[in-house]
Design a protein around this nucleic acid. Structure first.
Length: 376
DNA sequence: CAATCGTGGGT
DNA sequence: TACCCAAGATT
């Protein structure tokens, strides 16, 4: 690159598209022209790697093959299909977006960028991805891959999150106006498979001869990243509360905040100087108004979120008295173990469920009414 | 604009 | 093990 010459930009496009024809990934959402399917893939791919998305993508489209079926689905089904993918707000946003498109746009995805980004969960990158991929419209994208590729290609020494305007400019300027769909897909493939965060594979890069950071051996130092912050840790006491019918109590988390709308085994943060059984007894009373007896330890689960680490100390518990009140949750349910799979749970709770299914059901304490009542 | 929002892969 | 990073959007 010796200047802002048309031939230089065209060279990037030609090289990239030629490389893509040989080395592009074969992905499920590249085998369809259905804009709805592409919309689904774009939502799932937000901050989530391809290998993680594929199974969920295929299951989703099998159960909700059209935008109409998605719009009409129950929230519980939406969350169940999203289970395990994380960032669960995306599921609600996708559901809402499909409902709006069906209701207000005749089931056709709007092809105007300004319209698309007004829909829930659709920002500029997702909108650009949909428009370029589904309709071959010349809309740029700027995901993590593209930010890294562009930072190296043009040797941009400002951290990407402080340099969004310039990065968008480059993404727009570089975009192939004839084949924007394939170009954007190719750009992300370079980021995901060649221009790796650590150990960039410059020898396999179609842009090796035009990359400014490679010429000065800066590619390992770009993009510039700022040090992260420390992640706090909490210990959480969790109760698997059994009733005399052999059912366990679960609750649905609030509609906002961490793991919104998902189901869980009730519990809460262990306060300073408090024992775990005391914590569980207190939390169950505060959140549900139930009196329980805390029993033996079931499992301890360590889990990491983006901004939080938790240790879940889980105990078997036994219902004594009270009717559940909805204080810190949306709903509750007494369920038998085989029915737990009907409810969407976060990953940390999946480990509890697995432990439950592998461990024998604890005997109901004799002093609390004798043997278990066999339900049905 | 900084914080929030999950989970799995890779080093 | 302990990080970093991922087809980001929202508030």
């Amino acid at each position: 690159m010796t200047g802002d010459r048309w031939a230089d930009w065209q060279w990037f496009r030609t090289e990239l598209l030629a490389w893509y024809a040989q080395h592009g990934r074969d992905l499920p959402w590249r085998r369809t022209h259905d804009p709805y399917a592409i919309l689904v893939s774009e939502f799932m791919l937000q901050q989530t790697q391809v290998v993680t998305v594929i199974a969920h993508y295929q299951k989703w489209l099998k159960q909700l093959p059209t935008i109409q079926t998605c719009a009409q689905a129950q929230p519980q089904d939406i969350f169940k299909l999203w289970e395990g993918l994380g960032y669960y707000r995306r599921a609600t946003y996708l559901h809402q977006t499909c409902q709006i498109i069906v209701r207000e746009y005749g089931g056709k995805i709007p092809q105007a960028l300004d319209t698309l980004i007004t829909l829930p969960g659709i920002g500029r990158t997702t909108a650009g991805g949909i428009l370029s991929h589904a309709f071959n419209l010349p809309t740029p994208i700027l995901d993590g891959n593209v930010q890294r590729v562009l930072s190296r290609l043009f040797a941009l020494t400002t951290p990407p999150h402080r340099n969004q305007k310039q990065l968008w400019h480059y993404s727009q300027r570089l975009l192939d106006p004839v084949a924007p769909g394939r170009f954007n897909q190719a750009l992300m493939d370079v980021g995901a498979g060649v221009c790796l965060p650590k150990d960039p594979q410059c020898g396999r890069c179609p842009w090796q001869n035009g990359c400014m950071s490679t010429q000065t051996q800066q590619q390992h130092d770009l993009p510039v990243r700022e040090p992260g912050k420390e992640i706090p840790h909490r210990t959480i006491g969790v109760g698997v509360i059994w009733n005399a019918q052999g059912q366990v109590l679960i609750d649905q988390r609030p509609s906002t905040g961490l793991l919104a709308n998902l189901w869980e085994f009730p519990g809460g943060k262990v306060e300073a100087g408090e024992s775990v059984p005391d914590c569980i007894r207190r939390e169950i009373y505060e959140e549900l108004g139930l009196e329980i007896q805390v029993g033996e330890h079931l499992i301890t689960v360590n889990h990491r979120y983006t901004h939080l680490r938790v240790t879940l100390v889980v105990h078997h518990c036994f219902y004594r008295s009270g009717i559940p009140e909805l204080r810190g949750c949306q709903a509750y349910a007494w369920v038998e173990l085989p029915d737990l799979c009907r409810y969407p749970f976060p990953q940390a709770n999946q480990k509890i469920i697995q432990a439950l299914q592998e461990s024998p059901i604890p005997p109901y304490p004799l002093e609390m009414g004798g043997g278990r009542v066999q339900s049905k």
